[in-house]
Design a protein around this nucleic acid. Structure first.
Lengths: 211, 211
DNA sequence: TAACGAAGTAACTGGTTAGTGCGTTAAATG
DNA sequence: CATTTAACGCACTAACCAGTTACTTCGTTA
């Protein structure tokens, strides 16, 4: 019997987890097409055969990584507990959270980009993720309604469009930071530049919904 | 001597142009890593050898395609002639143009995404593109200043940040339309959805700069 | 404790792909 | 018209890469 804490010589769960973590890094760095299965195996300190044993194929591995990434961000969003905050504060907190999440989890953006290059064909096969997203839209819908009741927000703002915009203004800045830095001759990633962008985004969203 | 209009059996310029057009399609569809040189040659009805003759390597071909794409959008922006419009109209026209350009030139977005996956290493080698972009920022800066003089816009809005936001709210919606359509259970590309998004974006930008 | 299933490994395969060597043919030049 | 230059094509290669075969080792349980 395996004693907890003891270094097991064989540990299916641990190996699977190491593969998943390595795959996330490799897919994020090089995209689905550019990622190398051998590289993932090496990074995970696992044999390549194990990848096929646990995940079936490179594509299924990608699908699993992508699903896990979506579940992670949606779960974090739920934990924000925005229901108990005044509408204005709740919305600002969501904008801040989205920005910070992208900043701390740059793999998320690259994974989503890669999936969209492939026309969403992996996400289509997943059904867990949709229900998580419904929750997000209703969360924002609630904030908007509450804000209108409080008299600080105008009515008639589409929650889905607002959601897309909140994501867009952070996501675009970060995903296009390389070309942006070159074209606009700015350092996109200095802490001053990041702070400035976050403030601009909060301002954009609040002006959009305010009465 | 080649007679104008006569179908030449050999035409360096035409072959080069066909390769470039084919490469744009292939790179946009599959990214730099996923694009196949053989596929580009076939699509261009040129021999693969010609690609290496005119462009040297796959990477240099990509760089040329990317440069051409940037020059195209920046040139189109200049032709908008926004200087002779009232500030509000000028800004709305720019938001509309940006949206429509992305919509009609979907390759542009995918090329930029691909370049950012590769950390901008091709654009770094190009110097033509930077000067084009400087022009865009000053164009928006002028509109903002003019709007403030007219009394319709507030002062202190950063033209670069505004520029980024105008691009972001259109770009993000379109590049993530596959995952978006699945997660939010909406058809992102129906003409009603597209109209609605454009209106939302115009509204977002105007509220952002208005007094 | 035997035996069975699952974890793990190394070496291989078949297909693909960027890039080339070398020969051919059309057009420009003098 | 002869010669040179540049466009063009065929067929090849060396490297790469996803996926597999055939095998060993460990842990669990009848």
């Amino acid at each position: 019997m395996a004693v907890a804490g003891k270094t097991k010589q064989r540990d299916a769960e641990a190996t699977r987890a190491r593969i998943l973590a390595a795959a996330k890094k490799e897919f994020a760095k090089n995209g689905l097409g550019g990622a190398r299965v051998d590289e993932i195996a090496e990074r995970a300190k696992a044999n390549k055969r194990m990848i096929y044993h646990y995940f079936g194929s490179k594509e299924e591995l990608f699908q699993t990584v992508l699903e896990a990434a979506y579940i992670d961000i949606r779960t974090a969003e739920r934990k924000l507990d925005l229901e108990h905050l005044p509408a204005r504060e709740a919305l600002e907190k969501l904008v801040r959270f989205t920005w910070t999440y992208y900043l701390k989890n740059p793999e998320f953006i690259t994974l989503v980009n890669s999936e969209n290059l492939h026309r969403g064909r992996h996400l289509k096969k997943s059904d867990v993720v949709t229900s998580f997203s419904r929750n997000l839209v209703s969360m924002v819908g609630d904030i908007l309604e509450r804000g209108a009741d409080e008299g600080v927000f105008r009515r008639g703002v589409d929650p889905t469009q607002l959601n897309i915009t909140i994501a867009a203004i952070g996501y675009y800045y970060l995903t296009n930071r390389y070309t942006g830095s070159i074209l606009f001759e700015r350092d996109y990633m200095s802490s001053e530049a990041l702070d400035e962008r976050l403030q601009f985004n909060i301002d954009t969203v609040l002006r959009l919904v305010s009465v």
